[in-house]
Simulated assay, not measured.
Amino acid sequence: MLEVEHLIVALVEPSHVQAQIIKAALAERGIDQVTVYETGADLFTALAVKLPDLVFSALYLSDMTGTDLVYTLRDTPAWADLPFILISSETNPYYLDPVRQAGTMAILPKPFSQAQLTMALGNTLDFLNAEQLDNDSADDFADLVVLLVDDSSTARRHVRTILEKIGFEKIFEANNGLEAIPLINSQLFDLVFTDYNMPQMDGRALVEYIRKESMQSSVPILMVSSEDNQGRLAAVEAAGVSAICDKPFGTEVVRKLVGQLLANRE
Rank of each mutant, 00 (worst) to 15 (best):
M1G: 13
L2S: 03
E3R: 12
E3I: 13
E5T: 13
V9M: 05
A10F: 02
A10P: 00
L11I: 10
P14H: 11
P14V: 12
Q18M: 14
I21W: 04
I22G: 00
A27I: 02
A27Q: 11
E28Y: 13
A41T: 15
L43G: 02
F44A: 03
T45C: 10
T45W: 11
V49L: 09
V49S: 04
K50D: 01
L51E: 06
L54N: 06
V55Y: 02
V55R: 01
F56K: 01
S57C: 05
A58I: 02
Y60C: 00
T67K: 03
L69C: 01
L69I: 06
V70P: 01
T72P: 00
D75L: 14
D81G: 05
L82R: 10
L82Q: 06
F84S: 01
L86C: 05
S88R: 01
S89N: 14
T91D: 04
P93Y: 02
Y94L: 12
D97T: 15
D97P: 03
A102R: 05
T104R: 06
M105P: 10
A106I: 05
L108K: 05
L108M: 08
K110T: 13
K110S: 12
F112N: 07
Q116R: 13
L117N: 04
M119H: 15
F127R: 08
L128T: 00
A130N: 05
A130E: 03
E131M: 15
N135R: 14
F141Y: 13
A142N: 11
D143P: 03
V145K: 13
V146R: 08
L148R: 09
D150R: 11
S153Y: 13
R156M: 14
I162K: 07
E169R: 14
K170Y: 10
F172T: 01
A174N: 04
N176H: 11
N176C: 09
L178A: 14
E179M: 15
L183N: 07
N185F: 09
Q187G: 06
F189K: 02
V192C: 06
V192M: 03
F193W: 10
T194K: 06
Y196H: 09
N197Y: 08
P199W: 04
M201T: 08
D202V: 05
A205N: 09
V207Y: 05
V207T: 11
I210L: 10
K212R: 13
M215Q: 13
Q216R: 08
Q216W: 10
S218F: 13
S218V: 11
V219Y: 09
P220H: 07
I221Y: 05
I221Q: 03
L222E: 01
L222K: 03
V224T: 11
S226Q: 07
N229W: 09
L233P: 03
G240C: 03
G240D: 02
C245K: 00
D246C: 14
F249G: 01
F249H: 00
G250V: 09
E252T: 13
V253T: 09
V253P: 00
V254Q: 02
V254P: 02
R255G: 04
R255V: 06
R255S: 08
K256F: 15
V258M: 12
L261A: 02
R265M: 14
